[in-house]
């Protein structure tokens, strides 16, 4: 559990970060909270000759709420998310999800930016951000661009971010209605056996629109438009929920690991999603 030698950088502005990334390319990685990257380095599964610590870079933190527009700086920790009353009022699903990530000690260090940028299918925020249709702001040598969370993930640890870019901000528009994040895990600190993010809006006694995403059930987070569509224009009754679950299960591709075999994971994914839909609908 001792990493290979590496050079450590602690720039104070984003230009300094970009310059280092341009200089070292694939040999450099930025580090936010470090709770994924450092263990990988200690296991020597990731060899990072040039490690760029973002904690002194100005302007990467903070949560701003402007009406229904929400911007979360990349270096915002999970603990910051949990503690922010304005965010809890505007988009309570973030606190609900963040409280299910790891343990308090990790949440004081782990960041939203690191969680979404790392591309680990086990992370909770990517699926949640797909559910919320969040946009990720990337800054690189050519300036700034925005990529939708739903377009960001290509494969495990492979994302739309290029080696010279830094993810600086996550933004989304808070929707009316109800939302829920349900997660089954073996213990505190574990990744999900299955987790589901659901957001839906109600018009009278029917669901106007729904967005459904799932975590750790494929090599990327799974946003399932078909599952959401199955709930739209329904009273979210048992048959609609079943249709949504069937649609979501058609989109996931879990693999066997110590959490259990595929058949079990698919079954639990259905149960967890059902619970998330019911919970979100009750809140809508």
């Amino acid at each position: 559990m001792i990493p290979a030698p590496f050079d450590y950088y602690r720039p104070t502005d984003i230009a300094g970060v970009i310059a280092l990334l341009e200089e070292h390319g694939d040999d450099a990685r930025v580090m936010a909270g470090g709770h994924s990257l450092i263990p990988m380095m200690k296991l020597r599964m990731a060899e990072i000759p040039h490690l760029i610590d973002l904690q002194d870079v100005a302007g990467l933190g903070g949560i701003t709420i402007d009406g229904s527009e929400i911007r979360i700086g990349a270096m915002t920790t999970q603990a910051d998310l949990i503690d922010h009353e304005g965010l809890a009022a505007a988009a309570p699903i973030l606190r609900e999800a963040a409280l299910q990530i790891a343990d308090p000690q990790v949440r004081y260090m782990g960041t939203v930016g690191g969680n979404v940028a790392n591309g680990d299918p086990g992370n909770d925020m990517p699926g949640l951000m797909q559910c919320l249709d969040a946009q990720f702001t990337l800054v690189g040598p050519d300036g700034e661009r925005t990529v939708a969370a739903r377009d960001f993930y290509e494969a495990a640890y492979m994302t739309a971010r290029t080696d010279e870019e830094v993810l600086t901000c996550v933004s989304f528009t808070a929707q009316p209605g109800g939302a829920a994040y349900e997660k089954q895990k073996r213990k505190i600190g574990d990744y999900a056996t299955a987790a589901a993010a659901v957001q839906l809006t109600r018009e009278g006694s029917t669901c106007a629109a729904a967005s459904i995403a799932m975590t750790n059930l494929s090599d990327v987070p799974v946003w399932s438009p078909a599952a959401g569509a199955a709930l739209a224009d329904t009273p979210v009754d048992d048959s609609a929920i079943k249709a949504a679950v069937d649609a979501a299960l058609a989109d996931i591709d879990p693999t066997e690991d110590n959490r259990g075999p595929v058949k079990f994971k698919r079954h639990v994914a259905g149960v967890i999603l059902t619970r998330a839909i019911k919970s979100a609908w009750a809140r809508a």
């Binding site: 073996r186 056996t193 959490r259 259990g260 075999p261 058949k263 079990f264 079954h267 639990v268």
Partner: peptide, 16 residues
Amino acid sequence: HDHWRIWQIANDLGLH
């Protein structure tokens, strides 16, 4: 008796 093994008991007993 972790989650999947308990689930497997229930599954084998036809409870699903």
